[in-house]
């Protein structure tokens, strides 16, 4: 088949479309001038302001704590759900569990956020827990939608994996719990790590659900960013975005390096 210029040209345009906004964020984070189009020379003063902004730093700390706890809980729950769906055969309620695991992936955030908030309010009115809303309610909400992502990632790893080794261990007399911790867990570890990282990223990035289920005193980083950004372009936020891009790029490069190494050996 003759290959024209059409495909490469569209692809280059597409990649430019994906990366120009990110590159422009990075460049303007070093702009001395507060105005976006006026180039006032190179400066790192916005990074200084960012690191001296107690509101942003406080929110970042809250977001990190929520992210670590929800990613960990989501990884545990999501892995159990994936095990049930791939290794337990036809158990009662399997269909219901499948539906509940995959539905959060396509549910609009406004609906998830609203429904969880209404649940928390109704629960508090009925039996006093959770008392008020804040970090705990955000953690529950994030765990719920992140465990769906973990379940999908781990499930595909479990399906691809050869279960003969697990069967061999069971034949040799290992109890199911032992088979899981000695055989299955080490084999699905890479999926658990990527599931955890994905959950952590999703939790750190969520604005809509956190806004619904949060209470006074628990403003996450996206909530603070959103309130600042609504008022217009803020170079400080550009600096923050640049730091995030650098962390992500370094992280992806490291994982790519290790993946290539593993493939070679």
């Amino acid at each position: 088949m003759k290959r024209g210029l059409f495909l490469p040209v569209v692809s280059i345009f597409g990649f430019l479309f994906l990366y120009v906004p990110i590159v422009s964020l990075v460049i303007f984070s070093f702009n001395k001038s507060k105005l976006v189009t006026v180039w006032g020379g190179w400066s790192t003063k916005w990074y200084g302001e960012l690191l001296n902004d107690p509101q942003i730093l406080g929110a970042a700390w809250i977001s990190l704590k929520i992210g670590v706890v929800s990613a960990t809980l989501a990884t545990v729950l999501g892995t159990i759900a994936a095990m049930v769906l791939t290794r337990f055969g036809r158990v009662r309620g399997r269909g219901l569990l499948t539906g509940m695991v995959t539905a959060p992936l396509v549910m609009p955030e406004v609906i998830t956020g609203l429904s969880l908030l209404l649940l928390f309010v109704a629960m508090e009115a009925s039996f006093g827990w959770p008392a008020g809303r804040g970090m705990l309610t955000i953690i529950i909400a994030h765990t719920t939608f992140c465990m769906a992502y973990v379940a999908v990632v781990v499930q595909s790893r479990l399906t691809d994996m050869d279960d003969a080794i697990e069967e061999a261990a069971a034949d040799l007399g290992a109890r199911p719990v032992r088979v899981f911790f000695d055989i299955t867990l080490p084999m699905i570890a890479p999926a658990l790590i990527s599931g955890w990282l994905l959950s952590f990223t999703l939790s750190l990035d969520d604005l809509v659900i956190a806004s619904f289920v949060s209470g006074p005193g628990a403003s996450t980083l996206p909530m603070v960013i959103f309130s600042k950004v609504r008022l217009g372009v803020t170079p400080e936020i550009n600096a923050l975005a640049t730091l995030i891009v650098v962390v992500v790029a370094v992280g992806i490069s490291i994982s790519w390096f290790f993946m290539r190494k593993r493939v070679k050996t």
Binding site: F15, L18, Y19, V20, P21, I22, S24, L25, F28, V36, T201, L204, D205, L207, P222, I225, F226, V229, G232, V233, I237, N238, L240, A241, I244, V245, V248, A249, G251, I252, W256
Partner: peptide
């Protein structure tokens, strides 16, 4: 990887980038 990479950076900040553009 170039397609997936933007996923890992903040969605909110990438939408914000368009305001400046």
């Amino acid at each position: 990887i170039l397609i997936v990479l933007p996923f890992w950076t903040s969605f909110l900040l990438r939408v914000y980038a368009w305001i400046g553009i």
